[in-house]
C-alpha cells in the first residue's frame, strides 16, 4: 500500500524567529502521503496544521523558517527531492507549487483576488505550467469549471469571486488548484466556511476527482467528521507535534493517545441523552510560544503522571507499520517506572 509514496515529511520543524522569541509552530512532524490516498491532518486551531502545509510549499511567511527536517517529494521518474534544500523562490520550487502540489484554502471568500476575474486567475494558473495561448487556456479553464460542476462555465470565467456563492467559489478554487494537474492536493480546511450540504458536495467532488486522477490528497481540518468521511490515514497534531498516527480505523475505533480519545469524546452523538453535557477538553490550547514542559498536552490531560509527563518528553511508540503514539502511557515504560521509583 505504501509503495507509491509521493511525499514524505520527516521530523519537520518550522519556527517563527521573532525578536520576542521563537515560536515553534511545527516542531517535529513526520508523515507520508501516497498516490490515490487521503491523509487527514487533524487538530485544534493553532496546532500547526496550516504551517505544515505552507512549509511543504515553501511559502511560510517571514519570520518563519524551516529549521530542521526533510520534505521528500518523489519526482515523476521515481527519484526523491528534498524540498527543504531547494531555494524557496527558485525555479524548481515554483514548478512544484501548482504544478506538483495544488493548494485549496479555507477562505473561499478571500482566496481569489476581488479585482481579477475568475478566468484571469484560472488561465494564469494554467499558463504558468503549460505552454498554451490565451484562447487555449481559456478553453481549458472552462473545461475545468465544468469538471468541478459549475453550471455556466463560460459566464463564470468573466465573473469576480464575490459574484459567486460560497460553494461555487470553493469549486472554482478546486478547479484553480487542479488546473496544472498536480499529483498532490493540499486542502486546508476546505469546507469549514461552507454549510453542511455544500460541505458534503465539495468533499464528494474532491473524492471523485481523486479517483479519476489517482491523486494524493492531504486534508487539513479540525473536523473529525470530515476525516471519518474522507481520510485513509490520519495524523493527530497538538501544539506543533504529532501525538498519534494511524489508519482512519485505528484512530476512530482504537484511539490510544488521551488527546485523541478526548477529541472523539467531544463529538456530539445522535443517540446521546437529551441535554446531556458534551464532554470538553479542559483548558485551552496554550500558545506555542510558551509550550508546557514535558508532554505539551499534560496540563489538560486527565491521565497525566506527575513527575513524568510534565518533565520528560514522550518517545514515539510504533506498535505497527504506520501506527504511532507519542505518549508516556504507551511503549517502553521502563524509564517511566524508574523515574517514578526515584521520586518515591
Amino acid at each position: 500500500m505504501r509503495t507509491d509514496r509521493l511525499l514524505s515529511v520527516r521530523n519537520l520543524k518550522t519556527y517563527f524567529l521573532a525578536d520576542e522569541g521563537v515560536t515553534k509552530a511545527v516542531d517535529g512532524v513526520s508523515f507520508d502521503v501516497s498516490a490515490g490516498r487521503t491523509l487527514g491532518i487533524v487538530g485544534e486551531s493553532g496546532c500547526g496544521k496550516s504551517v505544515t502545509a505552507l512549509s511543504i510549499l515553501r511559502i511560510v511567511d517571514d519570520p518563519g523558517r524551516i529549521v530542521d527536517g526533510e520534505i521528500l517529494l518523489t519526482k515523476n521518474d521515481g527519484t526523491p527531492v528534498d524540498l527543504v534544500t531547494q531555494r524557496p523562490n527558485g525555479k524548481f520550487m515554483r514548478s512544484v507549487r501548482g504544478g506538483e502540489i495544488g493548494l485549496v484554502f479555507q477562505e473561499p471568500m478571500t482566496s481569489f483576488s476581488p479585482v481579477h476575474t475568475i478566468g484571469n486567475q484560472l488561465t494564469e494558473a494554467i499558463r504558468l505550467h503549460e505552454r498554451l495561448n490565451k484562447a487555449e487556456a481559456r478553453e481549458r479553464a472552462a473545461d475545468l469549471l465544468t469538471m468541478v460542476g459549475i453550471p455556466r462555465p463560460a459566464a463564470t470565467l468573466d465573473q469576480y469571486s464575490w459574484e459567486l456563492s460560497g460553494g461555487l467559489r470553493q469549486r472554482a478554487m478546486i478547479a484553480h488548484a487542479l488546473a496544472p494537474d498536480p499529483r498532490l492536493l493540499i486542502a486546508d480546511e476546505p469546507t469549514t466556511a461552507l454549510d453542511v450540504t455544500t460541505q458534503a458536495q465539495i468533499l464528494d467532488l474532491m473524492m471523485s476527482l481523486q479517483e479519476e486522477r489517482s491523486m494524493a490528497i492531504m486534508l487539513i481540518t479540525h473536523d473529525l467528521g470530515v476525516i471519518a468521511e474522507t481520510a485513509d490515514d490520519v495524523v493527530v497534531m497538538y501544539l506543533g507535534r504529532e501525538v498519534e498516527q494511524g489508519s482512519v480505523e485505528n484512530i476512530f475505533y482504537d484511539p490510544q493517545h488521551p488527546y485523541t480519545r478526548a477529541l472523539l469524546r467531544s463529538i456530539p452523538a445522535l443517540d446521546a441523552a437529551p441535554k446531556a453535557k458534551l464532554p470538553a477538553i479542559t483548558g485551552s490550547v496554550p500558545h506555542p510560544f510558551d509550550r508546557p514542559s514535558g508532554c505539551s498536552f499534560h496540563p489538560r490531560c486527565s491521565e497525566a503522571i506527575e513527575g513524568l509527563c510534565d518533565i520528560e518528553e514522550p518517545e514515539t511508540w510504533r506498535p505497527a507499520e504506520g501506527r504511532e503514539v507519542v505518549c508516556h502511557l504507551f511503549g517502553d515504560r521502563e524509564m517511566a517506572v524508574s523515574i517514578e521509583g526515584r521520586r518515591s
Binding site: 515554483r94 512544484v96 482566496s111 486567475q121 494558473a125 496544472p180
Partner: peptide, 20 residues
Amino acid sequence: PYVTTARAKGLSNRRAIGKY
C-alpha cells in the same frame, strides 16, 4: 489569502505581489 493562492500556484514573489 489570495496572495498565498497566487504564490501557491507558482508565481514568483515579485509577480504575486505586483499583480495582486
